[in-house]
Amino acid sequence: MEEPGTVGAGARAVAPVALAVAAFGLTFGVLARDAGFGSVAMVVFSAATFAGSAQFAAASVLSVGGTVAAAIAAAVLLNTRYVPIGISVAPALSGPVWKRALRAQLIVDESWAVGHLGGGRYDPALILGAGLVLWLTWVTSTAVGAVAGDLLGDPERLGLDAAFPALFLALLVGQIDGPRGVQAAILGAAIALCLVSFVPVGVPIVAAAAACLVGLRR
């Protein structure tokens, strides 16, 4: 991108992604209700945590009768990826501490991908615009799923669980800008797949970040 992005450009760039996220939010609303979440509880969860995969993980653990500790561990481990993600965006966020902390909350996988200018540089305005649209979409669609989930029926019957990996695959393709990126992506995927059976849910994703160390090779 030649010129610095604007909040509006971020919002527009993320619009198609937001539609996919809405389907995901509906699905989460249905799953969370089955897991024993009340409507208010799941909307508060979406507004505060704003990280779909972790919320899914927590609700799925509870819905199959897992313990509270297991549900929390799965979701928290999945979200530890936001520590390195936050570090990657940090150079782009300036201003007072409260403002940086607040704007960091709008970082989510999809707004992070939209705001990536390549080479590890991020545009704060793009992340802000995309993040706001995604946050509103996520909270609203969760609420609709909570209230009107019965009309939707079984989300799996509609294939909505396959929409999520497809969205990430589309975002991934847009992030690869050289052979280094291809190597890191393949290595990261391999690390995650190898670990799935041996470590708690969430750890494979975090461990995959080690693949980024190929960036140190000359």
């Binding site: 995969s53 799925s60 199959v64 990826r81 390195p84 993600i85 570090i87 990657s88 996988d109 992070w112 991908a113 990536h116 080479g119 590890g120 396959a162 999520f164 990996p165 990430f168 695959l169 975002l171 991934l172 992030q175 690869i176 280094r180 990126g181 291809v182 890191a184 992506a185 393949i186 290595l187 990261g188 995927a189 690390i191 995650a192 797949l193 799935v196 059976s197 041996f198 470590v199 708690p200 849910v201 494979p204 994703i205 995959a208 970040a209 693949a211 980024c212 190929v214 960036g215």
Partner: peptide
């Protein structure tokens, strides 16, 4: 960190496609 986006997204793709719990 420049490689973080492709790496984490690739891991999310394979895990959300091929994993069911553990």
């Amino acid at each position: 960190v420049a490689l973080l986006a492709p790496t984490l997204l690739a891991a999310l793709v394979v895990v959300s496609t091929f994993a069911s719990g553990r």
